[in-house]
Design a protein around this nucleic acid. Structure first.
Lengths: 135, 135, 135, 135
DNA sequence: GTGGTCTAGACCACA
DNA sequence: GTGGTCTAGACCACG
């Protein structure tokens, strides 16, 4: 598992980390039950304070994506999302709206946009399949 | 010109405003050369500090979307999006991927996801139509 | 709003604080929309680091009980719980089990236990009523 | 004697074990004078470090529930709960209040809450019965 | 003024 | 060894 932190990005370091782990878990590169890197080694590797890594892991734990166990480590969870259906739909709609607004701004119309969405969905489906077969 | 600010959204107010103006300019709701509302009236209408409005306008000027002219006001610039097609597709793919990753963690499958995307596209299309008719 | 921190309790300070605020919000002493104390003044009053207060507020935000807004403060939310019904039931069952196990240990039988539960429910209902009438 | 450890629960393993023994002793499942399982076999059965089992037994000894005798083992002590009725009621009320506060935030009303309490009581009663019959 | 992020370093709880 | 908590103090983003 390789992480890439951009200290110039303005985006908080702990969110960059959390996003990358969330992506890895979603795409199957991190399998359920797999352990994340320990706090101390990772903090040295990334030249980041240990508390910052811990904050990223806590963020993911609050979202039900990983589980932190004292004295053992941090593990990817398999379980379902703990949020209710309307809340899930609202969270997702917010992310989708961000993409739609950017499409408007970039003068990408409805059909090319939907085509790109399908393309990215296929891309992720392919990643997931190869991750499962390679496991 | 109507703006909608959500103080509970977590997103900075000046960014909410800038995003809405950017969208309006990109979709033709605001025509090139058209003036943006003056700072003071808008700050009273939205019950927001004048500095916050000014910050939104500065943000847009830095992005080349509007032009701030001392003592006259803030005007929408002409000129299309300066990004090439592949660059635009790449930017958009990043936003779309974020939504897809979240959908995966929220256990929303391909078809319900695409349905929600179409729903949000319709939602925005409706907003734009009613805004243009009221123009 | 008065808070009481016990540094000898073993229980983390940030959880003591979060529990007291959760209790105040549940019993109506803190009304929806009401602001919590600012980080800096409260940290001086309680002789606790500002980050510790911030952690308590973040904990409550993750649970959907309050909302932190940059530059404005921390406010009690009115909205519904963001968790799905089975997750809510599971969380609640865990709390109830803790009470039942203690009742077993304290040799309190089923009927006296249920009586005490009803007594505490009445107690809270009374608090809520007086808080709403006094508001 | 059967124990159930949940490594994903967030609750420390030694406390899970101590709570289960405390419950068993309080409910008569473990009789006064009876020996607790030896450290080594139990640590292998539960796939837990021996130190963790030892810590659980120490915890119980500190609470006056068992007696650790060097070289012989760990035995359940006689003696009822040493707390007076009002103290016991107060301790229990604290636990019950925690559940009621959570129920309020999770939007669970009085009747469904009482129903869930009865359900959990039945659940525990069933566990105790099957354990005693299997004895 | 508000809260958010990050660092450096300490001590504790757990396995 | 693991993660959890807390402190002290710095700088940034926001209104």
């Amino acid at each position: 598992m390789i992480f890439q932190i951009d200290f110039q990005a303005g985006k908080p370091v702990y969110l960059q980390l959390a996003d990358q782990i969330r992506l890895a878990a979603a795409s199957g590169r991190l399998q359920p039950g797999e352990a994340l890197p320990a706090l101390r080694p990772l903090s040295e590797e990334l030249r980041v304070n240990r508390n910052t890594i811990a904050k990223a892991y806590s963020e993911l734990e609050a979202q039900g994506i990983v589980e932190n166990i004292q004295g053992k480590g941090c593990f990817v969870k398999a379980g379902r999302s703990p949020f209710s259906a309307p809340v899930r739909k609202g969270m997702l709609a917010g992310e989708i709206d961000a993409a739609i607004v950017m499409a408007h701004h970039l003068q990408v119309d409805r059909e090319p946009f939907l085509e790109l969405v399908r393309e990215r969905l296929d891309h992720f489906a392919g990643q997931l399949n190869s991750a499962q077969n390679g496991h």
